[in-house]
């Protein structure tokens, strides 16, 4: 899904090309070279919100297809959800907590602690993805493949779409960690804030999808 992954990328990466001077008053974002006016810090938040709106529309289209397709009824057999999903959910919720801690540490100037907590978050994200793959394997072992039943088709599709978006989030976490922020037009703390908003959103999206997959079975 080229389009959706790009959504993730642009939240953090997009448009660094300009590299702008700070406004006269001095903002914590950006450096002081170049002749262009700065892109204000809030633009990144605007763009993030818009990206999330587009992602919502994408998942709403899939979710309403799910509901409509289920309503047609005749051949729908509910897919038993692998129990590992609950473990994965707990992992993802925990990662939302650790990212909050990480940002607190960054704001408090505790860089080492920030790094550790940020790594923990990234690790939990990767663990979640691994757990999702285990869920797929268990389902496949039980004979439920992508084309077995519309219910299993949607299970694979929704989890894969969420996983792809979450992968974008993990790349963003790496990016926040490794980018040389001294040369950037936004600060690391702003980038971390943006990444964490996206991360929480992915968390909420997963809860929504899980509710759809369990309640709408």
């Amino acid at each position: 899904m080229p389009g959706t992954i790009v959504d993730d990328v642009e939240l953090i990466d997009a448009g660094r090309g300009g590299g702008n001077p700070p406004p006269a008053g001095g903002d914590d974002d950006g450096d002081s070279s170049g002749s262009r006016r700065p892109v204000p810090r809030r633009a990144y938040f605007t763009a993030l919100q818009l990206g999330l709106a587009a992602i919502v529309m994408f998942f709403m289209a899939l979710a309403s297809s799910y509901i409509v397709r289920k309503g047609l009824g005749v051949d729908w057999q509910s897919t038993p959800l692998p129990p590992v999903l609950w473990f994965n959910t707990a992992i993802l919720l925990a990662s939302s907590a650790t990212i909050v801690v990480a940002r607190k540490k960054l704001e408090g100037g505790e860089r080492e602690a920030f790094r550790s907590w940020w790594w923990v978050t990234t690790g939990l994200g990767l663990l979640f993805l691994a757990g999702q793959i285990i869920a797929w394997r268990q389902l496949a072992a039980a004979g439920m493949l992508l084309a077995t039943n519309p219910s299993s088709s949607f299970f694979y599709l929704l989890t894969a779409a969420h996983g792809a978006h979450l992968t974008g989030g993990i790349l963003a976490l790496f990016y926040v960690m490794f980018r040389p922020w001294s040369r950037s037009r936004i600060s690391q703390s702003t980038a971390a804030e943006l990444a964490s908003i996206y991360w929480h959103f992915m968390d909420g999206l997963w809860i929504f999808l899980l509710a759809l997959l369990t309640l709408g079975r």
Partner: peptide, 19 residues
């Protein structure tokens, strides 16, 4: 985004045998 979702569903019907 909605068209993208529709395209993915259609591709799966074509290539992965979903319905």
């Amino acid at each position: 985004g909605v068209l993208l979702a529709a395209c993915i569903l259609l591709l799966l019907d074509r290539l992965a045998g979903t319905s």
